[in-house]
């Protein structure tokens, strides 16, 4: 068995004491960028910006999905309404509505552009008006219009005009609702919201870039002597800029990853809340794999932007040196 080495004496211990002020670990930067105060604040700021960008992006995705859902559900679909009142404003009897419905559906037989149709029963119509009139109203006493849901092969203008002409021949006040009017309003509204989310992302992006420019300039001012020394011993502008760009990349990556993580948690909670509400009109906050991939790129894009911003700021400032 190997003999245990003798314990070092107190004197030897003192001699081998770690040197005070000994450099620890691996040198990361030639300029003392990590020693300047405010790195944590910058990371926090970038984290918050990432959080806002991801929320704005997710809102945009949800609005886009909602628009698609509305548009695709109503494609080539229209509703024919036989008003509960006739041309003179007198109430139509149920029999009259039933007769007109029969005339219209009979006309469909000679119209190849009509793919399918469904005459809505009184129960169907009652279901539709319940949210507005309440459950306990005696619907049998209320004049209800006749409704026919129609699906055509093609919803072009010529088809619609042909259908409208046929309906006018049957009765002057039968209305054809292609849903385009309210749908276009709704789509314009969601597009406006998407534009707002884009503008928020843009403002956040510009603010982040300004914050990084400020932080880099502040560090350059504090570390002026070190930068000048590197310059004097032959460091190129690229070499000095690479220190700042690497630092900015890592700080931004750290901040934006934290921001992404927090926003992922918040989005999951929002998704959970919305799914429990089961209101069909609300946007769906469930992200698809494509959306997750895009959001996953946010920290990388932010970090690359920070890196490029830092580089350009440093290169520009270094031109002041001889």
């Amino acid at each position: 068995m190997a003999k245990k080495p003798p314990k070092p004496s107190k004197k030897e211990n003192r001699a081998k004491e770690p040197m005070i002020g000994k450099a620890k670990g691996t040198r990361r930067f030639d300029i003392a960028l990590e020693n300047v105060q405010g790195s944590g604040f910058l990371a926090l700021l970038i984290g918050l910006m990432s959080f806002l960008v991801i929320l704005a992006l997710s809102a945009s995705f949800a609005l886009s999905a909602m628009s698609d859902r509305w548009s695709s559900g109503l494609e080539n679909k229209m509703t024919i309404e036989i008003p509960a009142e006739d041309l003179n404003g007198a109430p139509r009897s149920r029999e009259n509505i039933t007769r007109l419905t029969g005339d219209i559906t009979a006309a469909f037989d000679n119209m190849p552009q009509v793919k399918s149709y469904k005459v809505l029963s009184e129960e169907d119509i009652s279901e539709l008006v319940k949210p507005w009139l309440g459950e306990n109203l005696p619907l049998q006493d209320i004049p209800l219009p006749g409704l026919i849901s129609v699906e055509t092969h093609n919803n072009d203008a010529a088809n619609i005009q042909a259908l409208e002409r046929r309906l006018k021949n049957i009765s002057g006040n039968i209305r054809l609702d292609t849903h385009q009017n309210w749908l276009s309003h709704l789509l314009r509204f969601t597009q406006t919201l998407q534009l707002v989310t884009f503008l928020i992302s843009l403002v956040v992006g510009v603010t982040t870039i300004i914050a990084i420019i400020g932080a880099v300039k502040a560090r350059m001012s504090v570390l002026h002597d070190e930068i000048e020394l590197l310059h004097l011993i032959g460091a190129t502008d690229n070499y000095i800029a690479s220190q700042f760009q690497r630092y900015s990349f890592f700080i931004s990556l750290k901040g934006s990853l934290i921001g992404t993580l927090v926003s992922a948690i918040i989005l999951s909670l929002i998704g959970l809340l919305f799914s429990e509400m089961s209101v069909n009109l609300l946007p769906n906050f469930k992200l698809t794999m494509n959306h997750i991939v895009i959001i996953g790129f946010v920290p990388i894009v932010i970090s690359l932007c920070a890196m490029i911003t830092a580089r350009r700021t440093v290169i520009h400032a270094l031109t002041q040196l001889p």
Partner: peptide, 15 residues
Amino acid sequence: RLLQHMSAFDNVALP
């Protein structure tokens, strides 16, 4: 004009 955050080794290695 030594860089105070770097060791003697790293200061000399810089050029």
